[in-house]
Simulated assay, not measured.
Amino acid sequence: MTTHAQHAKVGVIGLGAMGLGVAQTLRNRGYQVHVCDVRPGAAADFASAGGVACAHPAELAAQVDVVVSVVVNAAQTEAVLFGEHGAAAAMRAGSTFVMCSTVDPNWSIALEARLAQSGVLYVDGPISGGAAKAAAGQMTMMTSATPAAYAAAGAVLDAMAGKVYRLGDRAGAGSKVKIINQLLAGVHIAAAAEAMALGLREGVDAAAIYEVITHSAGNSWMFENRMAHVLAGDYTPLSAVDIFVKDLGLVLDTARASKFPLPLAATAHQMFMQASTAGYAKEDDSAVIKIFPGITLPQAANDGGQR
């Protein structure tokens, strides 16, 4: 445990799949972690094993040096900061707000300036890697911030993540790199689903497709990870279809501003929107495979089947 960890107080707002892992990692690495979540009981459950449960963001922000926000999008981040019992008004000058969501880079740039008016430092710090890596302290952070923000919160960032990329000296670059990552992630999931669907349509055994592709040049991390969900017939949302409706939408918005063409990202976005409107919005993002007609998907054990 570092001397810094013994003294720093950190707050985590949002105890979802990634946020809970972040909070657990910080606790395991010696930080006193304050937490809050909109779901009743989530903060208390975390604090029962060590930590401090707070009723709302303002209560949390008043007690900590670094606030880490792990919510879904910009709108939720706005609510965390500036909504009823928001964190911004309670944060002391010199404290740091770490924004971990996938957002429009221009929104992140504006937020840095807005917080600076009250002396609050800001880290543009989207995260990647999934719940398991967050819980193991092995996720990736794509960050950009002023030198003062890094000085204040750098040790916390290093404790949260296995890899912390420092991509610029002000907000924006972190979110831009996350946007590029999400372009690839969304396209890879959509392509993986298309490939598996074609194999099923042609009568190839799903397990055989998975075995061969994961040991061949066509493999991707997303194929290996997400098509395992399809094989299991398990669409429990680790990352939902609607996350990629949002994230690929941000990708396209970013490119549209400079009239930059993204044909594959646009097609993948349409696929996720089709899956969402077909009723799979809250299912795992691998459920994008359900948009393909005339295929029989693997069934979960003790399940009646998907089609």
Rank of each mutant, 00 (worst) to 15 (best):
A161H: 12
F260I: 08
A89K: 03
A131H: 07
L167P: 01
K163W: 10
G279V: 08
S118C: 02
G51A: 12
A278M: 12
N302P: 11
Q76F: 04
M139D: 03
D247I: 09
F46Q: 09
D303Q: 13
I213Q: 09
Q306P: 03
Q138R: 03
S258R: 10
G199F: 02
D158F: 02
H229V: 00
P126N: 01
R307S: 13
S239A: 14
S108E: 04
T102I: 00
A257H: 01
S48H: 06
A255L: 07
A116K: 08
A268G: 03
A206V: 07
T140E: 03
F272L: 08
I209G: 11
I109D: 13
E194H: 06
N225H: 09
A192K: 11
A149T: 05
K133H: 13
V156M: 07
L297V: 13
A152C: 14
F244Q: 07
K282N: 13
N302M: 03
I243K: 04
P263K: 14
T254L: 08
E283H: 15
R256W: 05
A47E: 06
P126T: 04
G279N: 04
G16L: 01
V66S: 10
A161D: 04
F244W: 03
V187W: 00
G304R: 13
A43H: 14
T3E: 14
A93C: 11
G174S: 01
V103R: 00
K246H: 02
M160G: 04
A55I: 07
E112N: 14
E283C: 14
E211C: 01
V10M: 11
K163Q: 15
R166E: 10
A208N: 10
L250H: 01
V72Q: 01
A151P: 06
V230P: 11
M1S: 09
G137E: 03
F272T: 09
P261Y: 04
A197Y: 00
E78C: 10
I127Q: 09
A155I: 12
D65F: 05
V288K: 07
D242I: 07
V164W: 02
I189Q: 06
L250D: 00
M99F: 05
T146W: 00
A287E: 05
L200N: 13
A161K: 05
M196T: 12
K163C: 11
G137I: 02
M196V: 06
A88L: 04
R166S: 15
A151T: 09
W221N: 02
M160R: 11
P57K: 15
Y210A: 07
V10K: 00
D303S: 15
L183Y: 05
R39V: 08
A136R: 08
M160D: 08
G233Q: 08
A116S: 11
A275V: 06
V10C: 05
Y280H: 13
V251F: 02
A135W: 13
H34Y: 14
A257E: 11
A47D: 06
M139K: 08
A79R: 08
A43P: 05
H4E: 14
V98D: 08
I109P: 14
V204L: 15
H56F: 07
T25F: 09
P105M: 02
W221I: 10
V98K: 10
R201P: 06
L238V: 15
D247L: 12
Q24N: 05
